[in-house]
Every structure is written in C-alpha cells, then in structure tokens.
Amino acid sequence: MTANKENEFLKAKKIENGTVIDHIPKGSALKVLSILKIGDDFPGTVTVLMNVPSSHYGEKDIIKIEGKKLAKKEVAQIALIAPTASVNTIQHFSVVDKYVVQTPKKLEGVMPCPNPNCITRREGESHLDVEQTNPFRVRCAYCEKVYGEDDLKAALE
C-alpha cells in the first residue's frame, strides 16, 4: 500500500460541494441520517464521525454529505432530533454558509401530525404550531391535539 492510499483511508475526505452537519449530540448521527433518508442508494459520499472529542459538548457526532444541500424542512426536522447541530454549506471546498439549526414557530409539512385520526394524515399539509420550547410542545392547527418532544421524535422515526 502506498503512503498516499494509506492517507486516504485514515483521513476523512474533505467534501467539494455539499453539507457538513457539526455539533450533533453524541449518538444522534444515525437518527439525523434517517431523517434525511440517506441510505446506500444515496449517490454522494457520506462520512459519519461519531464520538468526536469536542470542546463544548464533551463528545459530538459529525456528518459530511457530498452533493446535498439541506432543505428548510430538513433543517427543522434536524432541530428536533439534534437541537445543537450547526449546518455548514460547502462550495468548492469552502464554507459559504454556516448556521445553528432552529425550530421554527410553525412546523408546516415538516412531519405528520402524530394523531392518526387527524385530517392532515389524509389530505393537505400538516401544520403544528410550536406553543412552547422548554419543554417543547406543539399543537396541531387542525385536530388541536398537543404533543411533546417524544411524540414528535417517534413520529419522525
């Protein structure tokens, strides 16, 4: 094996165009991938770093995705699973945009209403209003049911 090849094995590859999701709480990287529906059929290179030492959070997870820019809806979904995550948009090997994920006041079409008997499970887009962030609480604008963080996480997975 040449030195060069070995280097490629050891180092996580830099991405040219895509997204780096940093500061994911330790243990949540795979959940984030599942929200993004990234599996073996995804065309780009995906690097998952788990249990990375971090100055702020003890240990964190990082995901690098070649060839993907996150949609607003995906960012809102990640905010629920990984509220500390920061998103870096990469173009030509450099960061062109960086922000911490944020839960919007309204979750429109972000995830289905957890109520199986809600009209939005049959037609139209879901619409959950965030009534409270700590503890996290949403109310469906249609069926008026109230849900906490765990209900929404369960609905996402």
Binding site: C113, N117, C118, I119, T120, G124, C140, A141, Y142, K145
Partner: peptide, 13 residues
C-alpha cells in the same frame, strides 16, 4: 360532521 379530527378546520380553509 366528520369522524376525522380537524375536518372542519380543513373545510374552512
């Protein structure tokens, strides 16, 4: 009247 919750809110929309 509908058996599904939120039906009236949807109709109003």
């Amino acid at each position: 009247r509908h058996s599904v919750e939120g039906a009236a809110a949807r109709a109003a929309e």
